[in-house]
């Protein structure tokens, strides 16, 4: 039975994502892969092509559409990032990116919640995701941690201190992400130190932190989202 191959499941998931967004009034768009320059990111390196670059994400072009009045858009496209290879990374990969105007990161978290539930319902027999043998149910209430809480609970250090002494990424991958593997629901890690969320809106009550989040399923980081000012 060919229906069970990974390629068939992948096609099913892509189709479910397209239905989810178009039913909610998002317009599917396509933007150039090869662009003059990407938005600068400290730790993301583009692959050059002649004097231009391959996109590391469709961010720049999609924001241009947003500014032209296309207020709910999504895209599923190839992206390229130099020198990324590992069990969870490839230099060429497929990205889903969506934007909506007049919304903040809470709305985006709701989008993530709706999307995972819809994909699980349409593509799995038990409406759950399975990662490393563990069932993860997107219909139960999700686990939320602020970055500050996660650092205190799983690393016994202050998040802002670990940014200062350059250990933030190491502690995150060595202590916090493995701890997320045990949750049977998706996990949202939110409110990043402001230095680590360049374009994100600062939280009005605690301006050391910004309105940025990452979504994890079974310890696997699936999405990054933030409010923009």
């Amino acid at each position: 039975m060919l229906q069970t191959t990974a390629l068939h499941r992948r096609a099913q998931v892509l189709q479910a994502i397209r239905i989810f967004f178009s039913e909610r009034g998002f317009l599917e768009v396509e933007t150039p892969f090869r662009i003059p320059a990407n938005a600068p990111e400290e730790y993301i390196d583009p692959i050059p092509t002649l004097s231009w670059q391959l996109q590391t994400s469709p961010e720049i072009c999609m924001k241009r559409l947003l500014s032209r009045g296309y207020d709910k858009i999504f895209q599923i496209c190839r992206c390229w990032r130099s020198d990324e290879r590992g069990s969870r990374h490839l230099s060429e990969f497929t990205m889903l990116e969506w934007y909506r105007s007049d919304a903040d990161y809470h709305d985006l978290m709701q989008d993530c919640r709706g999307l995972l539930q819809y994909v699980a319902d349409s593509c799995t027999s038990d409406s759950c995701f399975t990662q490393n043998g563990l069932k993860i149910d997107p219909h139960q209430s999700w686990q939320h941690f602020s970055v500050q809480e996660a650092f205190l609970q799983f690393t016994k250090t202050e998040a802002l201190d670990s940014v200062k002494n350059g250990l933030f990424d190491e502690l995150l991958t060595a202590e916090i992400e493995p701890a997320f593997e045990k949750f049977k629901v998706p996990v949202i890690l939110q409110d990043y130190p402001a230095q680590l969320a360049a374009l994100a809106r600062l939280k009005s009550d605690t301006p050391d932190y910004a309105e940025r989040f990452e979504l994890y399923v079974g310890g696997l980081e699936l999405a990054n989202g933030f409010s923009e000012s």
Partner: peptide, 12 residues
């Protein structure tokens, strides 16, 4: 050998 990279963070 493994490459890890937390969202937008540094490659380890």
């Amino acid at each position: 050998f493994d490459f890890v990279k937390p969202g937008k963070g540094q490659a380890l």
